[in-house]
Simulated assay, not measured.
Amino acid sequence: MRNLIYKTLNLISPVFNIVLKHRLRVLAYHDIVDPINFEKQIKWLKANYNLIDLPTLKEYLFQSKSLPAKSLLITFDDGDRSVFEHALPIFRKYQVPACLFVITDLIDSKKDFWWDTIKKNEAKSGLSNAEIMKIININKGSSNKDRLDFLKKYPVTQNHQLSTVEVKELILSGVYIGNHSHTHPMFDKLEKDELLEELQNVHSFFDMNRIGDYSVFAYPNGNFSEDTEKLLMENNIKIAFLFDHKINERTINPLRISRIAVDSDNSMSEFKSKVSGLHSTITKMKKG
């Protein structure tokens, strides 16, 4: 039924592509769970959009350079190893640029994503996925101190994270590395000193390892606030990406760049609907 709905929507999505052809699209992935389907998505994107890199976006934002019609930027949040293992060979094959926002505390480690620590431990207790997601979302809405205190109740879980060598290989293959914080807290839940420590740790890691662009930032979980934005500006963040499932307006605020949430296992009909802007328009109408 879901796929049928998206196939129906795609009958009108070409209209959205025409109407919105001068509006930048930025896709936000997290991991690659279906490499075969992801390759289909990339082939389709390359055939139907002008795939740009982060330096091209910078030229548009700060040097008044124009973007081609139907411009699209591919981004990934968190730095999951599947980007290196599964996405990188596809990027190389099709010569596609992308931007990966990394969590610097996890690089060269066996540390787990904090939300996966919750998932793995609570799954053992027999909770459903919906119940586990409720716990995770409660923690995303808590103060940072309360979230960290809550996590102490769980046994440590591990994950094979990216190494600096692998990150450098990604860079050599055209993947731009950006700032996704040091430990992935919710930035709108941080005290000022916590936020400054997060930024300083990223800056130090990037400088020490000569990788990454500290000034290009993606909000963890998309959690945005005007107070946070002000602190980011004061600490030399020049570009910031949201996670709001929207196509950008004709005039773009560099610190509030919209992104469309997509997954590697989205069916092609669902994926096309999301990329066209139709899906986000309908979602906005429902909320309205």
Rank of each mutant, 00 (worst) to 15 (best):
K192F: 10
F243L: 07
D31I: 10
H160R: 15
L27N: 02
A87I: 13
S125M: 11
K192Y: 09
L195I: 10
L9H: 04
I177K: 01
V216P: 03
T75D: 02
I36C: 10
K153G: 08
D34V: 12
R259S: 05
T281P: 03
A123L: 12
E198T: 02
L232C: 02
H22P: 05
M268G: 04
I237W: 01
R250N: 13
N253K: 07
D263Q: 14
L170A: 11
S280D: 01
S273F: 12
E197Y: 13
K230S: 11
F62D: 08
L88K: 02
S267E: 04
N223P: 00
E39A: 11
K110D: 14
N236H: 13
M268R: 03
G178M: 01
M133R: 10
L199T: 00
D263W: 15
L72D: 09
T251V: 11
Q200V: 11
I42F: 06
L73K: 02
F16M: 03
N223V: 00
P89D: 06
Q95M: 12
P97W: 04
L232R: 02
K152H: 15
M285Y: 06
D263C: 14
T104C: 04
T157C: 06
L148M: 14
D193P: 02
D265A: 15
L9K: 05
E234H: 06
D105F: 09
E234S: 09
A69E: 14
E270N: 08
L242H: 01
M133W: 14
L54E: 10
S143E: 04
V156T: 14
G222K: 00
T117P: 03
A240H: 02
M268L: 15
L190W: 03
K192H: 09
H182V: 07
H245G: 01
I36G: 08
F150I: 09
D77G: 00
K284R: 09
A98H: 06
F217P: 00
H30A: 06
L27R: 01
D193W: 07
D108P: 04
S143L: 08
F187Q: 00
K58Q: 12
D108Y: 05
N17G: 13
N266Q: 15
A123T: 13
P68A: 04
T117C: 09
D108F: 07
M285P: 00
L127R: 07
Y176I: 05
I257T: 08
W115L: 11
H30W: 05
F16I: 04
K46F: 03
K152Y: 11
E59N: 14
F224N: 00
S264E: 06
S225C: 01
